[in-house]
Amino acid sequence: MTAPEVHSSTKAKRATPPSKAGRPKAHPKQPKLSVTPAELPKVEAAARNTKQNRILALLNERNGATIPEMMQATDWQQHSVRGFLAGTVKKKLGLALTSSKSDGELRRYRLETRRGR
């Protein structure tokens, strides 16, 4: 019998470091869109129609909104809407969120308008 072969556990080293020319850029530039000035308001309005803005618009209404209304507007689940209200609306944005409940109705949430300043 022969002696068992001993394998080296070192990794193979590259002869030369890779060049920067071969690597893709971390943040490639976006191509410029050709939008005419007449189309600009439509493009901006579409960009602002986010789920967050939909909920904020519902909360700014006079009667506010219920959680099922916000769920329908965003296709989020109930826990996601509640998390958005607590984490984003109250903590991150620092908005005054109030809620009210009448007998036999669902709880309605709305943004309190700030007076002064």
Score class of each variant (00 low, 15 high):
residue 51 K to A: 14
residue 51 K to G: 09
residue 52 Q to H: 08
residue 52 Q to N: 08
residue 52 Q to W: 10
residue 52 Q to P: 01
residue 52 Q to C: 08
residue 52 Q to R: 13
residue 53 N to W: 14
residue 54 R to P: 02
residue 55 I to R: 13
residue 55 I to A: 13
residue 57 A to S: 11
residue 57 A to H: 08
residue 57 A to W: 06
residue 57 A to M: 12
residue 57 A to Q: 11
residue 57 A to N: 11
residue 58 L to Y: 08
residue 58 L to E: 07
residue 58 L to R: 14
residue 58 L to G: 05
residue 58 L to D: 06
residue 58 L to Q: 12
residue 59 L to V: 05
residue 59 L to Q: 04
residue 59 L to T: 02
residue 59 L to M: 08
residue 60 N to S: 14
residue 60 N to T: 10
residue 60 N to Q: 14
residue 60 N to F: 08
residue 60 N to W: 09
residue 60 N to A: 15
residue 60 N to E: 14
residue 61 E to V: 12
residue 62 R to D: 12
residue 62 R to P: 09
residue 63 N to H: 13
residue 63 N to T: 12
residue 63 N to F: 13
residue 64 G to K: 15
residue 64 G to A: 14
residue 64 G to M: 15
residue 64 G to Q: 15
residue 65 A to D: 08
residue 65 A to P: 09
residue 66 T to D: 06
residue 66 T to Y: 05
residue 66 T to R: 12
residue 67 I to M: 12
residue 67 I to L: 14
residue 67 I to E: 07
residue 67 I to A: 10
residue 68 P to Y: 09
residue 69 E to N: 05
residue 69 E to D: 06
residue 69 E to H: 03
residue 69 E to C: 04
residue 70 M to N: 03
residue 70 M to T: 01
residue 70 M to G: 00
residue 70 M to L: 10
residue 71 M to E: 07
residue 71 M to R: 11
residue 72 Q to V: 05
residue 72 Q to A: 10
residue 74 T to L: 09
residue 74 T to A: 05
residue 75 D to C: 07
residue 75 D to M: 13
residue 75 D to W: 09
residue 75 D to A: 11
residue 76 W to F: 07
residue 76 W to L: 10
residue 77 Q to G: 01
residue 77 Q to D: 02
residue 77 Q to P: 00
residue 77 Q to S: 01
residue 78 Q to P: 01
residue 78 Q to F: 02
residue 78 Q to A: 05
residue 78 Q to I: 06
residue 79 H to K: 07
residue 79 H to E: 03
residue 80 S to A: 04
residue 80 S to K: 03
residue 81 V to T: 00
residue 81 V to Y: 02
residue 81 V to R: 03
residue 81 V to S: 00
residue 82 R to E: 04
residue 82 R to H: 00
residue 82 R to S: 00
residue 82 R to V: 01
